[in-house]
Design a protein around this nucleic acid. Structure first.
Lengths: 137, 137
DNA sequence: CGTGAAAAACCAGGGGC
DNA sequence: GCCCCTGGTTTTTCACG
């Protein structure tokens, strides 16, 4: 379904998703059209979900990033999941195991916005916030 | 530095980073070269950090994703940060505030691999693992 | 599943507003 | 900061192994 060549392509694309099929082919010794077929197949079967960009949020005025664990109030999970998608500040959300059932990643301009968000989330459940200090890479 | 047109471009690129400058221009009524100038400027100043892909890990045999909070043992932080980059299973790592000072996202093939990873991490600090059940979107 | 060659579309770079 | 033009590259499609 996905062989070692495909995996190599995925690794390369993870680092630079704008390379042309010709460039990709040069890196792994394959013709452009062969590369294209493989990549397209991975798009079709959903291995590649989306091409995206990574943004430096600080440089566009969003100085605060944080993870928030949310322990949703009894019986409110469906409602909360539906609400969460409406917050533009929430950039990622996952259901997780454990007593805290939702994990959020949020991006905000300043502490005031964080406070506002937490105030709103508090009506949905108990929150536990971890500010992101830096990315390790 | 980054105006509202730039932000629109970022939003579009976040969803589909492979659109041509021509397509981007069509979406926001701008010529291809104007779009190119803006996008290139954002690359130059580092607003766009990288073009990447989102992969469906389950479809390539990685059935387990999890967040792990790590409370690093006293005085070991620098060492741990340096070690963490060596684990291919760790796809994201952040320093965070709170008594648990590192937040990890990990991707693994099965429970055995998770167990192995946790065993290794236990030599660096106290772990707290949350399996990811699903992505909310 | 891979190759090769065609036309169509796209990109970099520079001049002009 | 935006638009247009041009030469060169890339993508796309398709017929073939």
């Amino acid at each position: 379904m996905v062989d070692s060549i495909d995996k190599k392509l995925l690794e390369i694309l993870k680092e630079n998703a704008r390379l042309s099929f010709a460039d990709l082919g040069r890196k792994i010794n394959l013709s452009p059209s062969a590369v294209r077929e493989r990549v397209q197949k991975m798009e079709d079967i959903g291995v590649i979900k989306k091409y995206s960009i990574q943004i430096d949020n600080q440089k566009i005025g969003y100085d605060i990033e944080a993870f928030i664990l949310l322990k949703v109030f009894q019986g409110q999970l469906k409602y909360v999941i539906q609400q969460i998608t409406k917050f533009p500040q929430i950039t990622e959300a996952h259901r997780i195991t454990g007593s805290q059932n939702i994990h959020l990643k949020v991006v905000l301009k300043n502490q005031l916005e964080l406070q506002n968000l937490i105030d709103q989330l508090m009506s949905l459940g108990d929150t536990n916030t971890f500010l992101i200090l830096s990315k390790i890479e």
